[in-house]
Design a protein around this nucleic acid. Structure first.
Length: 1062
RNA sequence: GGGCGAGUGGCGGAAUUGGUAGACGCGUACGACUCAAAAUCGUAUGAGCGUAAGCUCAUGAGAGUUCGAUUCUCUCCUUGCCCACCA
């Protein structure tokens, strides 16, 4: 039995404490506590049928250690857990074994729960959420509807991966090397209507707000790069039909007589020798009748469209393309005619889908120009040969690198044996024989010659704007988020399609402006001449999109009268999808009118709203006593108020009042006064246009009271052979009464991606059982934002970005307390298999955590996973290495049995000092996620204690306390054995004494010319003079100094002395 | 091809406002205990030369800055992750 005492008997101890902790509710967070809060979050797991992976406990233990320490430091800690259970693997498994995914999920979650509990993690299980629970996804659907009503969701035809043999749509991960994962058939594309989220609208804020949060730098850069902001210019190239020698608009259908390109290098405009449009570009179809080689082009486009993205990428080496013969475009800067090509190396998804090709200064254009024998004009002189970096140049067709040890790196071209020679390359660049992508000095650019690249960019952008052929523009790589999934096992999208409502739901915009016309006789709905106001521009832009626009002339513009104005709008068409814009007095009129008439509309946009006329007071300037019916908030999906920053104060004030009373979003435009009577220079108002959007026509949200829209229980989960979701086949479920008109409606059958549930689960944790709201304002305010969030790097660009996006959108709707969900984000490294590869069933290298726990115990497993290496890096598993930490835990037990003769006090300054240094180091290491060194520090302390003949009880207790977050079961057991009635986790975290933690003596190093020649024990605070004199006494040093001249001495206090000799 | 990381003994790793390279652990060797083994404990353990004191070389490669570089700069190599003809 004594033997037993010596060792950590984990099989007896661990389950016992897990039970006791649960019974005591030791880890439950309090929603109303006077202690400071700490919200500590891990990414909730996907309960796969493989069970827990050894990678899970690594990050969970890490945050568990932090959570336990924080509790001991007096924090009220929220450390929740749940399951992200929707998704493809479960669905596919369900199909395979012919079971309901819900059943499978339940089994898997049970297993995960048991496995997680066996690790002794201090989760607050009372707050567990599962995304597949209808009581949870009710709120996922509810949030979707809020964002839908805010105009952030739209529908678009998008290609999906399609297996022509299985006749099903495939997720990206089901496409392996361009082939279907199941049957190996090459995957093609199929166009389907998909729901998309307008994440691009938030692109800038998603970049800017990274300043507000503490994420690992690499996470920030990855997000910034993913969003991919680039500054440049949009430039219009006029189309000319060379056959007819004309540029008249009528030659081109759709009145489109120019092609717009985006470029980050407007300074190379003079070098644009041809243009390329992507095969999907609308120009290609618009202009087909005009071109000479119609059949060839049609053929090419057809082929290019059939290619999957992967193919288009794989074929990158051989560029292809076809010229659009018979038409040309005009380079706006020099009126030169240039040819226009269609080629699939240009993608529709980025920029405008068309580029100006500058072969002298872009590798891809250069390659293409060489292939098709197109003109190359150099417009950037590198300046001098030193600027020529091989990385910035491109020799056609190949560039090989030759490296010999001790020699500079050589570059060769083809088989010629050409050597890297800056002079020669310089000449080639100027002759257009080599492509140069760097910056430099402008040549061949007329009035812009001699300008440096950056200056050129600024100047030409201004010139383009002045000439109305282009403008400064910002472009993002980020694309809108495709939200639809054609699968069963996801949250149903809570929408109903209704044919009847479609008819009554067309997009209508009212523009109501009350200000008087300068010319009183003019019959127009805005002030001033046509070319002096943004309203005509807005009207034209909207009408071009097929929107019905009403811009009535309001009677008595000088003295607006509510009753007369009411009459003026009486007959205008309006519906629930309408956007109403009120400017100035019109902005005051609309809220009152909407209040009285009780109309439902989509959006209300007020542009510097004035004060409304009431019956007693008819002078516009005195209308302070306006009335606003606040109930309109409930009947309008979104309310926006525009104001400019140099508006007069009283207007600013009134705008703010509107914003506050109506709950509207206030947008301030900087710069010129867009809207004032005096300064009507604004002829275009794109910020306003951006805010005008319509709900999809004929698509009705499911009313909140009818949520959740539950997944029907059916026998067959197989995808349909039309590409639709399996739900489409369930007629009883699809057919539903239209919630708006009561007529025949059909449910949306697409489901949400599993990012949906995981986008907001951390909000639900704050109030997981609330059945009135997705979470109460009070609890959200209490806990959010999350103090620390840990997860894998693979989620940086998807989950993390999506959930920041939703949170911001919810913030704009005033539904969450701040603009950012997570204050701090860190990430863990993967646990690899023993062979250094990813663990996978097929490789047979998977480690089962259950077996590790059974053999070595949870505490050992926890300690090992912390000790194996730096937390943020990928580390291979090493079963042999586990015994080291196991021995360490046994040693801790043994210390109690053997050395604890336990004098309660003892004078041992060395141990004392080490103890306090350990407290300091372990505390700091936990805060900074350096768990591996925290563990080794504890080991060092234990090793030192082991050597003591008599170990003071107080010191031993501190060791056990420091150990407790890492090895909670063992520590709790020892704590009880040491006679404590209360849990160790109710103890206070030890604090170090800075004086004791300091070293009094150090091993002082004496160097000669930077090489260590002697070491001596000296006081830590030794002065330079003393150190020098000590050094001079050293025989070893004397030996090295003899016969040499001392040049100087470098003294680093408490560390070393370096004597430099010659 | 682009972006972001990482490269240190036989192995996992430690050490960075530039200051003793290899903490801690694994493994290995020898020893103690044992009839024996396991477990445990002790000693040693980067490489080379040397009986030794000691010296030299070593942090992916090469250069540079510095009294001093694993740490900073440049060029390159290898490797991991994410993305990919991003204009």
């Amino acid at each position: 039995m004594v033997e037993e005492e010596n060792k950590y008997n984990h099989q007896a101890i661990e389950p016992k404490w897990q039970r006791r902790w649960e019974e005591a509710g030791l880890y439950q967070a309090k929603d109303n506590s006077l202690r400071p809060n700490f919200y500590c979050l891990i990414e909730f797991p996907y309960p796969s049928s493989d069970g827990l992976h050894v990678g899970h406990p690594r990050s969970y233990t890490a945050l568990d250690i932090l959570a336990r320490k924080k509790r001991m430091e007096g924090y009220n800690v929220l450390f929740p857990i749940g399951f992200d259970a929707f998704g493809l693997p479960t669905e596919n498994y369900a199909i395979k074994v012919k079971k309901n995914p819900a059943e499978i999920t339940e089994t898997n979650v049970d297993r995960f729960r048991r496995q997680l509990k066996s690790l002794g993690l201090s989760f607050d299980w009372s707050r567990e959420v599962i995304t597949t629970d209808p009581q949870y996804y009710k709120w996922t659907q509810w949030i979707f509807l809020q964002l839908y009503k805010a105009g952030l969701v739209y529908q678009k035809e998008m290609p999906i991966n399609w297996c022509p043999s299985c006749k099903i749509g495939l997720a990206n991960e089901e496409v392996v090397g361009g082939n279907c994962e199941r049957c190996g058939t090459p995957v093609t594309k199929k166009n389907l209507k998909q729901w998309l989220f307008k994440i691009t609208k938030y692109a800038q804020r998603l970049i800017d707000d990274l300043e507000k949060v503490d994420y690992l730098e690499k996470i920030k850069t990855q997000q910034v790069n993913w969003i991919g902001r680039s500054e440049g210019a949009l430039i219009k190239f006029e189309i000319r039909n060379s056959k007819f020698e004309t540029n008249s608009k009528s030659e081109i259908p759709n009145s489109k007589h120019y092609v717009e390109v985006f470029t980050t290098r407007p300074d190379t405009l003079f070098g644009a020798t041809y243009m390329v449009v992507s095969p999907e570009h609308e120009l290609v179809t618009d202009i087909l009748g005009q071109i000479a080689n119609r059949r060839e082009v049609e053929d090419y486009v057809k082929k290019a469209k059939a290619k999957s993205d992967l193919e288009r990428t794989d074929l990158a080496k051989e560029k292809t393309g076809v010229e659009l013969k018979g038409i040309k475009v005009i380079n706006p800067v020099n009126q030169k005619e240039i040819p226009i090509w269609v080629a699939d190396y240009v993608l529709m998804g980025y920029g405008t889908g068309a580029i100006m090709a500058v072969p002298a200064h872009d590798k891809r254009d250069f390659e293409f120009a060489k292939l098709k024998n197109l003109k190359i004009i150099c417009v950037v002189d590198p300046g001098n040969t030193e600027n020529i970096n091989p990385a910035n140049t491109f020799k056609y067709p190949f560039r090989k690198k030759i490296e010999k040890p001790g020699k500079p790196v050589l570059y060769t071209t083809g088989d010629v044996g050409y050597k890297w020679d800056a002079e020669k390359i310089y000449k080639e660049i100027l002759n257009g024989e080599t492509c140069y992508e760097g910056n430099g000095i402008a040549i061949n650019s007329n009035q812009f010659n001699e300008l440096k690249t950056e200056e050129f960019k600024a100047k030409i952008t201004k010139w383009l704007e002045k000439e109305r052929v282009g403008k400064k523009a910002v472009n993002y790589k980020l694309r809108d988020w495709i939200f639809s999934r054609q699968h069963y096992w996801g949250e149903p999208i809570p929408l109903v399609h209704c044919e009847e409502c479609k008819k009554n739901n067309k997009p209508i915009v009212w523009i109501i402006h009350g200000s008087p016309s300068r010319n009183k006789s003019q019959d127009q709905g805005y002030t001033g001449e046509e070319n002096q106001h943004w309203i005509p521009w807005l009207k034209e832009s909207l009408e071009a999109k097929g929107v019905v626009v009403y811009n009535p002339r309001m009677p008595k513009a000088w003295q607006p009268d509510y009753q007369e104005w009411k009459k003026a709008v009486e007959k205008l068409e309006i519906n629930e999808n309408s956007v109403l814009i009120g400017h100035s007095a019109g902005g005051a009129f609309l809220p009152r009118w909407l209040g009285e008439t009780k109309k439902r509309i989509n959006k209300l946009i007020l542009v510097v709203p004035g004060k409304v006329a009431n019956e007693d007071n008819k002078r516009l300037h005195h209308f302070y006593d306006f009335k606003i019916d606040q109930t309109i908030k409930e009947r309008v999906n979104e309310i926006i108020i525009f104001i400019s920053d140099n508006e007069k104060d009283y207007r600013k004030k009134s705008s703010k009042i509107y914003s506050k009373l109506l709950g509207g979003r206030l947008i301030t435009i900087k710069g010129t006064g867009h809207f004032t009577f005096e300064d009507m220079k604004t002829k275009e108002f794109p910020e306003l246009l951006d805010e005008i959007s319509f709900l999809p026509v004929g698509v009705i949200p499911v009313p909140e009271k009818d949520l959740p829209v539950e997944l029907p229980k059916v026998k067959n989960y197989e995808p349909t052979n039309t590409g639709e979701s399996p739900l489409a086949a369930i007629k009883d479920w699809v057919d539903v009464k239209c919630p708006q008109c009561g007529g025949k409606g059909k449910r949306e059958t697409d489901t949400m991606p599993n990012w949906a549930g995981s986008n907001w689960y951390f909000i639900r944790y704050t109030d997981p059982r609330n059945d009135k709201e997705f979470a109460s304002k009070k609890n959200m305010k209490h806990w959010l934002p999350v103090d620390i969030y840990n997860g894998g790097m693979e989620h940086t660009t998807l989950h993390l970005l999506y959930s920041r996006f939703w949170y911001k959108a919810l913030y704009d709707l005033k539904l969450v307390p701040g603009p950012e969900p997570y204050s701090k984000r860190i990430s863990h490294g993967m646990v690899l298999a023993e062979d250094g590869k990813k663990m996978s069933k097929s490789l047979g290298n998977v480690i089962n955590p259950d077996e590790v726990v059974k053999e070595y115990g949870a505490d050992t497993m926890r300690m090992y996973e912390m000790f194996m290496g730096p937390f943020s890096e990928a580390i291979p598993w090493d079963t042999k290495g586990i015994v080291g930490v196991r021995r360490f835990l046994d040693k801790i037990c043994k210390l109690k049995v053997q050395n604890l003769k336990l004098k309660t006090t003892a004078q041992n300054s060395k141990l004392e000092s080490l103890l306090h240094k350990t407290i300091k180091k372990v505390t700091e290491d936990i805060e900074n996620f350096r768990f591996n060194t925290a563990v080794s520090t504890l080991m060092e302390l234990a090793n030192a204690m082991e050597k003591q003949k008599e170990l003071p009880l107080t010191h031993y207790k501190i060791l056990v306390t420091l150990l407790s977050p890492f090895a909670p079961h063992l520590s709790e057991e020892l704590w009880e054995k040491l006679g404590h009635k209360e849990s160790i986790f109710k103890e206070e975290w030890p604090k170090h004494d800075p004086d004791l933690a300091k070293e009094s003596e150090v091993e002082f190093v004496i160097q000669v010319n930077g090489k260590v020649r002697d070491k001596m024990q000296l006081p830590a605070d030794i002065s330079e003079e003393e150190a020098i004199s000590k050094a001079e006494q050293s025989k070893k040093i004397k030996k090295h100094l003899s016969g040499k001249q001392v040049v100087k001495k470098i003294f680093v206090p408490g560390k070393l002395l370096n004597i430099v000799i010659r």
